[in-house]
Design a binder for these strands. Structure first.
Lengths: 203, 203
DNA sequence: CGTGATCTTGACCAGATGGTCAAAACAATA
DNA sequence: TATTGTTTTGACCATCTGGTCAAGATCACG
């Protein structure tokens, strides 16, 4: 298998196309709901050709998830312990919301996976993600102890940021159905969330 | 078909068992991920027997969704225009969170459906749900105009309640993975959300 | 250009899955 | 208990789907 570093130009091009197509299809239909034919078609390949690059449907899915995990957590990683606390947190909210706007398929892919009980991610969640969160929780706790922000549970603060920002990507259909056609959910969310977290964080 | 009012005792018992089993399976695996055999087994029936009560897999799913829609929106309906604004809203948050704790499968069923683009619910969302929300939005707007609560966008206030409460049901696995085993997410969420919305709503 | 390596595909397979059907088992009621 | 309507099931079917394979097409490079 040519999984890790695609050697030839064609390999690079096709694995890329497959992963993009898979993102599209998996995020819309979930793992079991997606078919290899769909993915192959979306990538402009035949099914056997797709299976020339990936050993199985599962392999495509796993590759996608692990590749995405990194970029997905970047906004949280960027939170600077030495920055101005409220600005750092509001910045994080803003970046996370932009990711929801710019990469809704990625958001839905993860949502799908977690909803099904995270069968292919339990590990990563309990190790990598937990470690990163714990790190940031310590920082936030420090800010609270120093009186820079209100004294609220840092874990749930982070959950609330995830919930609120991802909601606009994952439940996009619902949001638009309720809001009507003429409004821009993400633009409104930006100001709403800024207000919300400003109030919440004020000591 | 014996869909609407199950006449005999056996019919009532079996349709009930099927719907409960379907809730279990659909909420865990999504529509396409669930199989009739799984559902039938969970209901203690054979597949042909299940299909004696419902004409198709889709029919089971649709019946489930529409039956659930009602109970699902009850907490919002209960919000009383004549009550004390902050208490009404905090009460709604609390009821919604309890639904997440007590009916996580229902929550995930809806989440799954919306994630896939709500193919079987577009209608209801754009009509019933939107109407109910608009109603409550008007009430909230009135409260804000009267200076009883802060002047924030009522739509996004409702979205934030949905996002924050459902997160604890839909992303349960992630929450627990990050939080560790010894904590009680829902109990903590209750106090956290009360704090959050108290701060947010204060004029 | 020739040759070996890489890439692509049509045909195919086995298992799963939604759904059918006729006949058997069962319940109710007279 | 006989009769009729309801419920259950084993056997079956068509289709879909993940995956295989051998043979052909294409590419890269000496």
């Amino acid at each position: 298998m040519n999984i890790q570093p695609p050697r030839t130009r064609i390999q690079r091009k096709n694995t890329q196309a497959i992963l993009e197509a898979a993102l599209l299809v998996f995020s819309r239909h979930g793992f079991r709901g997606a078919t290899l034919d769909q993915i192959a078609a979306a990538a402009g390949l035949s099914k056997p050709n797709l299976l020339y690059y990936f050993p199985s449907k599962e392999a495509v899915h796993v590759t996608l998830l692990s590749q995405l995990m990194d970029t997905w957590l970047d906004p949280l990683r960027e939170m600077d312990p030495d920055g101005e606390p409220v600005e750092e947190l509001l910045g994080y909210v803003s970046r996370k919301l932009q990711m929801s706007r710019d990469f809704p398929r990625e958001s839905r892919l993860f949502a799908n996976e977690i909803l099904q009980g995270a069968p292919r991610m339990q590990e990563v969640l309990a190790t990598d993600l937990r470690k990163l969160v714990d790190e940031k929780v310590t920082i936030i706790r420090g800010w609270a102890a120093a009186g820079k922000i209100a004294d609220i549970d840092p874990h749930h603060l982070i959950f609330s940021i995830w919930a609120l920002t991802q909601h606009y990507a994952d439940f996009d259909v619902q949001v638009r159905a309720v809001l009507g056609e003429d409004r821009d959910p993400f633009a409104e969310a930006e100001t709403f969330l800024r207000t919300l977290f400003t109030k919440l964080l004020r000591p």
